[in-house]
Every structure is written in structure tokens, then in C-alpha cells.
Write a protein that binds this DNA or RNA. Structure first.
Lengths: 192, 192
DNA sequence: TGTACATCAGTGAACGCGCGTTCACTGATGTAC
DNA sequence: TGTACATCAGTGAACGCGCGTTCACTGATGTAC
């Protein structure tokens, strides 16, 4: 069969989108290419017409996740007053906890990327972007802006990881709520 | 061949120790039982004389990691003045970053346990233990002790995850150093 | 206008491999008589 | 004391399965003449 002009590019993108979601939801190692292609109504043989290898797909999916999230975050930060507080609310929401597939790749993929020896410049890029965005959101009156933004990013990522792995819903909520309230307070605190 | 009285118990423990290290270093899914047994000079067939399944081993290895770490931390907290600052120094040290196999299982295993749907009461136990230990280490004069301890645990875990997945050593160091200094400052701050 | 050929996204069978798990067996030692 | 048997931690071959990857092929369409 012959396909429309950009049909292949569309399929390529569909594979990336689905992979990007599955890698975050199930993990990279636990995501098989066969089930992935099948979910898109394709056969697995066609995969290699689009990507050099699974690692190639991993990199492109991470890139995709990062870019989507960056756009999304820029939107949040572009908002009116208290953009950082809004970002914290979003990041530490029950919705984000419940949707790893659409969420930040740092809590879901970075540990496994490290273990696979597949750490790439992309990870550093996300980290640096987030750090800079947080720094910009902090009031100039806050001392130690660099230190505080690093702690904030660490706490955001750690809180999501922990809240997702806690069995007890009350404990999971506590992690999210405590961290959210405390971080938001830091965005205002000008007394130090 | 006949073995000494507690030979089997010793082998059992050796398997748990090796697995506990490999699960943390390489991930659970990426750790095969065959290579694991081979590394101990055993054949993989014997595995099932010791454990019901791989999941059984995962649970026992996590238990082992948790108990060892708890003992280790109690030691740190039993020290003279500033036990919490000492704990933070240890947790966010270059040594801990470099040795996931001997380190805290939260940054290495909790995300994967969640993805595997294998979250157990043990994870909650570690989290709660750490939270209580941190709370006890905070000065009574600190307001919001519960919130602050939650943020601290989140930041500790997040900082290790991020520092391990950063490619640039300077970025990795910055995450560790900033988070360490900032958290330690909170252990003293009595002015809020 | 009609026929022959080129294109190429996707097909589907096959590859070797390592996985978790099972199981009949080994063989050194302890026990029974 | 010597022989027959029981024990049981560990052996090693085999099981079915899904993995990542390869490759000869299909077949609908566009192009050439």
C-alpha cells in the first residue's frame, strides 16, 4: 500500500509518544518492543525502519518527554504572580503522582538510565533547565538562591518517587502535602 | 556431600547479601538469578531450595538492606552532638553516591518496586523509620517538625537519585553539596 | 489510454539469547543394625 | 566392626517464553513510455 506524504513521520512520532509513556510508566527494561508496536496496530518487524535500536528509541523518547514537559512548564511559569508556587502545586499534585506516563521523567527514568549506564546529556539538560526555572521563580530577597533551588528540585523529585512507592495512602499523601506546603512557604519567605 | 550444620543457612544468607547488592546496583529486573548464583560459585538449579521465587528473594533482600541500614543509621544517631548533621553528611557523601550496592535502597529500588506493582509494607517501614529518626534529630525549637522532616527525606532521596544520573561531575557535585549544606543549616536554624 | 516497472512502509517468520522455573539425579556423610 | 540405607544441599539439563534484531517479502500507489 502507498501512504500519504508524511505517513511515515506520523508513525515515527506515534512510536515515540507511546514509548515515552511506557518507559515512564513501566520502566525501560520492562517495556518490550513487540507489545509496544502491537499497541499501535503495527508489527514489530517494522520498528527498525524507524529506529536504529531500542537505545535509539530510549534517547528519542526521553528527548520527547523533556521537550513536552519544558513547554508545559514554561506555560506554568508564564502565568501571573506566584509562578513557582503554581509549578510546585502541579508537580506535587495527586494527578502527577497518579500519571507517571505523562509526568516528569526524572522520578521515573533517571535511576534506571543511571543503572543502564545510559546517562546522557539530556538528563543534565532537564536538571539544569529545572534549576534555572526554579531560581527565576524565587524572590530576589531570598539568600542562597542557588542552594535553595537545588534543594527544591531534589525534594520535588524525591517526594514523587517516595509518594509513588508508599503503600499506605495516608503516608503517600503526607509526603506530597508536607513537601508541597513547605516548599511553597520558601517561595515567599523573605525574612532570612 | 554432607555439609556443616548451618551450611545451608550460610548459603541462604550469602544469596540474600549478593542479591541485595545487585538489586540496588543494577536494578531488580536487570539482575538474573543465573549470574547471581554463578557469582557465588553455585549453580542456578539450587536457588529454589532456598527461595520460593525471585519475588521472594526480592522481598528478603529488601528486608536485609533495610535492617542493615537501620542498624547503621542508629549507630550514626547514637553519636554525640549533631547526630542529624552527621547523618546528612553520610547520606549525601560522594561515597554513598558511588556505592548504590551498599547504600540506601530508597533511591535505587523504590521506583522499580512501584513500577513492578511490588510495593510492600517494607517500603513504608523504611520511610517511616527515616522520618522518625530525622524528627528526633531536629531541635525542639524548630517549628513544623513533621513537615521539615518529610522535606528532608524527600530531598535526601531526590539528591542521590539526581546526582547519580547526572553526566557532568560538576553538576552531580553541586546537587550533593548544595543539598547537604542547606539541609544541615536547617538542623540548627532556631530563628523561625 | 494502457501496460510495465519502481517505490517503500509495513509484514511476519526466524535468529540466538537469557530469563524464571522444574526436576531427576549425585554423592558425601550420618544412622541403624 | 562392617554393611545397608536415609538424608539433603547442591548439580545440571531441560521447559517454555519473551526479548532485541534481521531479512526476504508484500502490495498499493506513483511514474515512465
Amino acid at each position: 500500500m502507498r501512504y500519504s506524504e508524511d505517513h511515515k513521520a506520523q508513525t515515527h512520532q506515534r512510536i515515540i509518544n507511546e514509548a515515552s509513556a511506557r518507559f515512564r510508566r513501566d520502566g525501560i527494561g520492562a517495556t518490550g518492543l513487540q507489545p509496544l508496536m502491537k499497541a499501535l496496530g503495527l508489527t514489530h518487524g517494522g520498528f527498525y525502519a524507524h529506529f536504529k535500536s531500542k537505545d535509539d528509541l530510549v534517547e528519542k523518547s526521553l528527548r520527547q518527554a523533556v521537550d513536552t514537559l519544558a513547554t508545559h512548564c514554561d506555560g506554568l511559569f508564564g502565568q501571573a504572580d506566584e509562578p513557582l508556587a503554581g509549578f510546585i502545586d502541579h508537580y506535587l499534585s495527586a494527578a502527577h503522582r497518579a500519571s507517571p506516563a505523562q509526568g516528569c521523567p526524572l522520578p521515573t527514568m533517571s535511576a534506571e538510565l543511571g543503572q543502564r549506564g545510559q546517562a546522557s546529556a539530556i538528563t543534565d539538560e532537564v536538571i539544569n533547565n529545572r534549576l534555572r526555572a526554579i531560581e527565576k521563580g524565587l524572590p530576589d530577597t531570598q539568600a542562597q538562591i542557588s542552594e535553595l533551588s537545588t534543594v527544591m528540585l531534589s525534594a520535588l523529585v524525591g517526594a514523587i518517587v517516595l509518594s509513588r512507592s508508599a503503600l499506605d495512602p495516608a503516608l503517600s499523601d503526607r509526603i506530597l502535602d508536607d513537601t508541597r506546603e513547605w516548599l511553597k512557604q520558601q517561595t515567599k519567605d523573605q525574612s532570612r
